[in-house]
Design a protein around this nucleic acid. Structure first.
Length: 129
RNA sequence: CCAGACGGCCGGGCGACCGCUGCCAGUCCCGCAAGGGGCGGUGGAGGAAAGUCCGGGCUCCACGGGAAGACGGUGCCGGUUAACGACCGGCGGGGGCGACCCCAGGGACAGUGCCACAGAGAAGAGACCGCCCGAGCCGCCGAAAGGCGCCAAGGGCAAGGGUGAAACGGUGGGGUAAGAGCCCACCGCGCCCCUGGCGACAGGGGCGGCACGGCAAACCCCACCGGGAGCAAGGCCGAAUAGGGAUGGCCGGAGAGGAUUCGCGAGGAUCCGUCGCCAGGGGCUUCCCGCCCCGCCAUCCGGGUUGGCCGCGAGAAGUCCCUGGCAACAGGGACUCCAGAGGAAUGGUCGCCUGGUCCGCAAGGGCCGACAGAACCCGGCUUACAGGCCGUCUGGUAUU
């Protein structure tokens, strides 16, 4: 299914100021809990990363990783912003997914069971709030 | 084969799985409905999509008459074009052995201004070294007249040296004390005429002794062109509220004073108003004329903001061919439909091939894949770009 997207600058600013942060080589996450709605995703890639082509590719990899990791059973009540870095473009895709999973766990977003890579202790607790 | 010139083209390929988005038809599911979802088919970044430098289409606003001015742009000639500052063909100048390339290429007797440094002098210029004449002083020779030499007041000259981006025509000859267009020939330059060309211009002839340095990308002059803002243009729909808007109608303001009239009266109403006051602000580029708005009444429509829809892709379109033209291009025929997002799709991952590079004796392995991402649409220009393909031509070399 298609995940809803964040579209307003207001929402991004709120996630940046009040959300929980976690950094990984491939990405930075800002997760804001308790929104009362379905999971919403946002992507940020600044001009510092590169020109339009580079930024597009970075954003697409992040979006694809999020689709594979969170797509099947998105936890409700979160606004999640993924920020692209220089590494995002060249990092092996499996490691990029690992970065995302780890960052989700660190910020307290419940890890989702059915991920593509089934190894490691992804606890089966399903988010419900 | 080597080196080079010009023009055109491509700009990784194939496959598998999983996705996003536009459209199409059927079917199934959800929903009262509007509609949503699944399955299927099909389309989905560029030659520059970029910079936003020109020109148009489209949209809204302004658009009354006359004149002037300002500002911006263009600048050899002819053609092409919807238009252009683009393109094509020429002309002139410059470069290259050549194919070919480059040029911001109107006017410097309309005017103002500038020409640093160096240099004597930088525009009706100038004399440092120098060349020539040379009063005279001194020295030497001589019996003398006088001769020679050093210095030199003063005068003539601008050839040579030297400075400079540029020195007031060049080369050669005559001429002269030395010189000088002073005179002559050729070249250059200017004017006039003839011939050819639509024209820029070219060729030829005559005259002129040279008068006219460069910079117009310093100002400027001349000719021609130009309304403003832009798809966040602009329009529509729905929800929710008066401070907005449209149309029509009416109207200088106010004071002292005066007249008539009503009222017992304070005072009121109407009219006059020759006296003095105010007569403003804004808009139409400016100015003059002219016009409009800012007040009151009536009727009608509903703003900001937010969400959705249209605008939005069949076009100055593309491919192939024919005709005309040196060409830009024009005309005709057949066929094709070719991206439409909206925090913004056009992808993610993997495998094989391929190109480059590095390591290795090799087998093989590692790394990398140019510049760059549509946003209303076209025509150009400019800039960025790994690698590669095709064609025409030039200069060599080899062979026959």
């Amino acid at each position: 299914m298609k995940l809803p997207r964040m579209k307003k600058r207001r929402d991004f600013l709120r996630a940046a100021q009040r959300g929980k942060r976690a950094a990984r080589p491939g990405l930075v996450i800002q997760a804001l809990p308790g929104t009362g709605g379905p999971l919403r995703l946002g992507f940020t890639v600044t001009k510092k990363v590169g020109n339009a082509v580079v930024r597009n590719r970075t954003k697409r990899r992040l979006r694809e990783a999020a689709r594979l990791v969170l797509g099947d059973s998105p936890p409700e009540g979160w606004d999640i912003v993924l920020i692209g870095r220089d590494e995002t473009r060249s990092r092996p895709f499996a490691q990029l997914q690992g970065d995302l999973r780890g960052a989700l766990k660190q910020t307290g977003v419940a890890p989702v069971a059915q991920s593509v890579a089934p190894q490691s202790g992804a606890s089966q607790s399903v988010a419900s709030s």
